[in-house]
Design a protein around this nucleic acid. Structure first.
Lengths: 268, 268
DNA sequence: ACGATCGGTACCCTGGGGGTATGGATCGAC
DNA sequence: GTCGATCCATACCCCCAGGGTACCGATCGT
């Protein structure tokens, strides 16, 4: 079986996205006729018609829609594979992703313990809101995540439980309470507002402004300031903080970091 | 960024597996010098040395080991993507994978109901022991699986609970009992023997021969014959039978089959 | 009916990927 | 130590796949 080449996939994706050979060719920095031929060649190789085309319209066939999604997966796998390889080659270091705001607690202790441990390697911390994407793209080697995140393609170990706390603006009617139930929270209009996926600092600012209310793990309460109040939430399963990494990858320094994090979490 | 081509990955994998340029070139049906240059070119493009080579030895660098695993993933993704596309193009049909022996019960009812339903498409049943691989490679569109299987890259819906039963040779000391506990089973030497991953028929034969004892879902008891006995196991979480399909794929006939299976399971 | 738009076809040409010949390094045999 | 065998790299050549230009033909708006 002769496989399509990467170049063919890139061309196909460009045409599929523009639904227009001329525009796609322009984006690819080439002329339109070779692009037409490349697509024909690809269709011939696959034995499948990918586009319904007239001189006025270009549309994906059902098979074309399938191939568009598959091409995306393949090119993503290719790019992350290249990135992981390049990471493995350059002077060993680890990239550890974490949600902004995790800094003070477990993260700092883990890094500290790791650097004192055997054969430490420079660790770079990448603060992001999408740790999963960072791992899957090969940008990060490991990441602190919540057990509620999406773990497809990832492996993970549990580190510790966090009792969930509600973060409320200081003046909120429930802010003076010692504990809240989920029912009480759900009655609150601010709780129903979807918080945007931003860093902890901005989140705190917006809570202080009374835009919404969120439930987080207790470790986020290190530096609330005076305008945001944390109140424990009762009757909710506690959040697990986990350390995750891309499945089916090997890295001795990363494994050492994972072991260190587990040790720190269990004795902290 | 200029990406490596598929051809380069194939060449690299061949050399990495043979650890020998000459042999790899022979397998690829080409001469050795162009292969050497292709690998050099690939290394230059990646900016990474993949092999430690002398005139006597060829070894993968650590980065090369990483790239070998990643190349495998990429080529797998490519092949399954092509296969899914070709499936989507040819006259619509569904391939449904199932462990051998599932035939009698839920599978038959689901197929029957599906064929009587709206817009049915020809369904081909693929009996296999590795449903996950069939789904991930694009060979099958959906599969009956157990909740204990590996679901990475798959989506699934629960169909029904199966009370677990132990399958014992007819003459076994525990075969006359009405129910067993896990403790009783674990005391049995036959239970500790690892059963090989074979079809149900062979499994039954080997149980009858007294080679081992297994715990399965109750639906497997349709045609035990007289030499194998099923005894319910108490105090074990019941097995879920699920219907799974590759994540991030779309297919109207498959969705219809899934809906049918859910309906059949809930009213059966 | 005519022009504009757009994809396909015909033809040319260049460069990269493949072939052959050979060099040079390493290791085993003696 | 010498010689030969092995094996990867280099030098050189050649061919065609893939890209460019020119043009055709179909379709749609006016």
């Amino acid at each position: 079986m002769d496989r399509p080449e990467v170049r063919d996939l890139v061309y196909f994706v460009a045409v599929a996205e523009h639904r227009h050979f001329g525009r796609a060719a322009e984006e690819l920095g080439m002329a339109q006729p070779p692009l037409s031929r490349a697509i024909s060649r690809l269709e011939r190789r696959l034995g499948v018609r990918l586009f319904d085309r007239t001189s006025r319209r270009v549309d994906l066939t059902p098979a074309g829609e399938v191939f568009l999604r598959e091409s995306g997966k393949i090119l993503t796998a290719l790019d992350s594979g290249v990135r992981r390889t390049q990471q493995a080659a350059r002077p060993r270091r680890l990239v550890l992703a974490a949600p902004a705001g995790t800094g003070v607690g477990l993260l700092a202790e883990t890094l500290d313990a790791y650097r004192r441990g055997p054969d430490p390697v420079p660790v770079e911390v990448l603060f992001t809101t999408d740790m999963g994407a960072a791992l899957r793209s090969g940008t990060a080697d490991a990441a602190f995540m919540c057990s509620t995140d999406e773990f497809d393609g990832l492996d993970a170990v549990d580190l510790l439980d966090e009792t969930p706390v509600a973060l409320l603006p200081a003046g909120h009617p429930l802010a003076a309470r010692d504990g809240l139930t989920v029912e009480e929270l759900e009655g609150d209009e601010l709780f129903r507002a979807q918080p945007p996926p931003v860093g902890l600092d901005e989140l705190l600012d917006r809570i202080a402004l009374g835009e919404f209310v969120v439930v987080l793990g207790a470790s986020a309460t290190g530096r609330l300031g005076s305008s945001v109040v944390a109140v424990p939430v009762l009757g909710v399963p506690s959040n697990q903080i986990v350390l995750a990494w891309p499945r089916a990858t090997r890295s001795a320094p990363r494994d050492q970091l994972v072991r260190t994090a587990v040790a720190v979490a269990s004795q902290g």
